[in-house]
Design a protein around this nucleic acid. Structure first.
Lengths: 232, 232
DNA sequence: GGCATTACTGTCAATATGACGACAAAGGAG
DNA sequence: CTCCTTTGTCGTCATATTGACAGTAATGCC
């Protein structure tokens, strides 16, 4: 039982909804292994750094977004012996949700970073480096299921948003259509989901919509259930 | 950025329901640090071992149970710089659920292992070693919430069980009482939750109860919701 | 047989959901 | 300004699910 030493990294699945599409932030690898392939942003955990701090640091380095407006949670760890040809590396993957930021990705390391549709990257062809395809798939599944029981969709929206904008998030992430009227009833009727600001906006084409901000609930009750899966 | 090397361990929160109590398997530490304190079982990940394999190996070493009858899933990783005074150790915690085994904990390493009520170990006094109190709290919360939407309660039961036994699991884990009639309706009415075996038993005092085994569903729909939290 | 005990079935009201009609409030075309 | 299009919001109704609880069934024990 010699080599008990591992490298530990954090990787980030940073998701956003833009152009009615679920997108993920990826970077082009400039060095082997997997040179030229897309990968999730990430890096080594520093000697005296907590895992979540490392994830926050990487997130800021890669996106330049203020942490205030980001949802960040640990997703899970991936440590197959063969996942990195250079040696034994365990990565602690994190899931980050961002609003569609007007400013394009800025920041030092973010030179090669790019928003890409999740769908493209999960296809059999456009494979991500390492096991990042698996991580991304797990991240998307986590986001999808967590929208059901947590008021998480607001993390994809600016601080103030309309019910319709919130609905678009659900529709894009779940890949389904939702009835605007029932959705409105559900969202405004679930305690702590959203709070009206009193303001309204006319961002869209028709009648101005009232603005809301995220409520203080951490759990939705009752949950906002997706239609039962195809079966099973 | 010198020392990028970490030790990586797996720790196990092994839960079971026995004597109408939620219990966890703990070992008494024989060496510093935290000598004499209770800790979750766990150990180092071997050089060529996957994380889940390491967890399975530790589980068998500590409990001697056949893996067949165990639910095992990754819980999350804990890596605060100060969590282990001996150096930088990241642990990948796992959650295991077992039926109440007739045979007491057997196996090589299991000498000092013991089932203890979760409640006792989460109290401010009887502190666990390292950050294992936090891990245990997270594990219990995961188990509680997962009972809602996954047919996981069966993992606490023997291969064949009665509806009442399944209900006891929910009641003990959630710390609530459930209406037997509504519970019965819900469980038998949710597709894939349980399958009748045709047999019946008279384990209890009164009328014999039909036996069921776990169904093939992986997700309950609709979910079995707990009463809304105290409030929000 | 009578009683205690546990298992199971059925009913009814309250609540939540899906489907969809209808009206409100803006902008734009003419 | 009026009509029309586009969105937002409220209301209604049938159906599904849940909570509360009455009532019947099948044992063991005395």
């Amino acid at each position: 039982m010699t080599s008990r030493q591992f490298s530990v990294t954090v990787d980030l699945a940073v998701l956003t909804v833009a152009d009615d599409t679920l997108k993920v932030l990826v970077v082009r690898r400039g060095v082997p292994p997997f040179r030229g392939r897309w990968a999730l942003p990430g890096g080594f955990v520093l000697a005296r750094e907590d895992l979540m701090d490392a994830a926050r640091r990487e997130l800021v380095e890669e996106t330049g977004v203020p942490l205030r407006s980001v949802h960040l949670e640990q997703l899970g760890s991936y440590g197959s012996p063969g996942r990195d040809p250079r040696g034994r590396v365990v990565t602690v993957a994190h899931l980050a949700l961002l609003p569609d930021l007007p400013e394009p990705v800025a920041g030092s390391d973010a030179a090669g970073a790019e928003w890409r549709p999740v769908e493209d990257l999960l296809s059999a062809t456009r494979r991500l480096a390492f096991d990042h395809g698996t991580i991304l798939a797990d991240a998307v599944e986590r986001a999808r299921s967590k929208l059901e029981y947590a008021p998480l969709a607001a993390a994809f929206c600016p601080p103030e948003f309309t019910i319709a904008e919130l609905r678009r998030v659900y529709e894009v992430v779940w890949g389904t259509e939702l009835d605007p009227r029932n959705f409105h009833r559900k969202v405004t009727g679930t305690p702590g989901f959203v709070e009206p600001t009193g303001e309204s906006t006319r961002r869209g084409g028709g009648r101005p919509a009232r603005l809301y901000r995220a409520g203080d609930a951490t759990l939705l009750h009752p949950a906002m259930l997706r239609a039962p899966h195809p079966v099973r």
